[in-house]
Amino acid sequence: SISSRVKSKRIQLGLNQAELAQKVGTTQQSIEQLENGKTKRPRFLPELASALGVSVDWLLN
């Protein structure tokens, strides 16, 4: 799922939720909701993929 991929990649990069949120241009709460499965397809998906160094396709599939 996107939530597990985001969380595992974030941890692999040594980032906390607030640091990832800053790179993406969103809030820590938005990252938390995404990782908890409350958000399925965030509006900041391209920025998120870029910050994590992955493709949008990788996040979604």
Rank of each mutant, 00 (worst) to 15 (best):
R10V: 02
S30P: 02
F44M: 06
V6K: 00
L34M: 06
L52P: 00
D57C: 09
R10D: 01
R43Q: 14
V56R: 05
A18R: 12
Q22P: 01
A21S: 04
A21Y: 01
A21C: 03
K23G: 04
V24C: 13
E35S: 01
L48Q: 00
L45E: 02
V6L: 06
L34P: 03
A51H: 05
R10C: 03
V54F: 03
N61C: 11
T39H: 10
S1I: 13
S1W: 10
P46R: 15
S3W: 09
K9M: 14
D57P: 08
K40E: 14
V6F: 02
I31M: 04
L52M: 05
E19C: 05
K23A: 11
W58K: 02
K40Y: 12
A49I: 04
Q17G: 05
W58I: 03
R10F: 01
V24A: 10
T39E: 12
G37E: 05
Q33H: 12
L59W: 01
W58H: 03
Q28H: 09
L13M: 11
L48W: 01
N36M: 12
K40Q: 13
V56F: 07
Q28R: 13
L20R: 00
T39W: 12
Q29G: 10
S3L: 04
I11P: 01
P46L: 13
K7F: 08
E47M: 11
L48T: 01
S55V: 05
L34W: 03
Q22D: 12
V56Q: 09
L34N: 02
I2R: 02
A18T: 11
D57L: 11
P46Q: 13
A49S: 06
R5C: 05
K7R: 12
Q29M: 11
R10Y: 02
S55Y: 04
L48F: 03
K7G: 02
L45K: 00
K40L: 14
K40P: 13
S8W: 15
K9G: 04
R41D: 11
L60G: 05
K9C: 10
L15T: 01
P46Y: 12
Q17H: 09
I2E: 03
N36K: 11
Q33L: 14
K7C: 08
N61V: 09
P46H: 14
G14I: 02
Q12G: 08
T39P: 08
E32L: 09
E35V: 02
V6M: 06
N36I: 09
S1E: 10
R5T: 05
L45I: 10
L60S: 07
L15N: 02
S3A: 15
S30H: 13
G37S: 05
R5N: 07
S3P: 08
T39R: 09
W58F: 07
G37M: 05
L34F: 07
T26D: 04
Q28D: 05
S55L: 06
D57E: 14
G14R: 08
T27F: 05
I11V: 11
P46S: 13
G37Y: 05
V54D: 10
Q29H: 13
Q22G: 09
K7A: 10
N61H: 12
D57Q: 13
S8V: 10
L60R: 08
L20D: 02
N36S: 14
L15C: 05
W58V: 03
L48Y: 02
G25T: 03
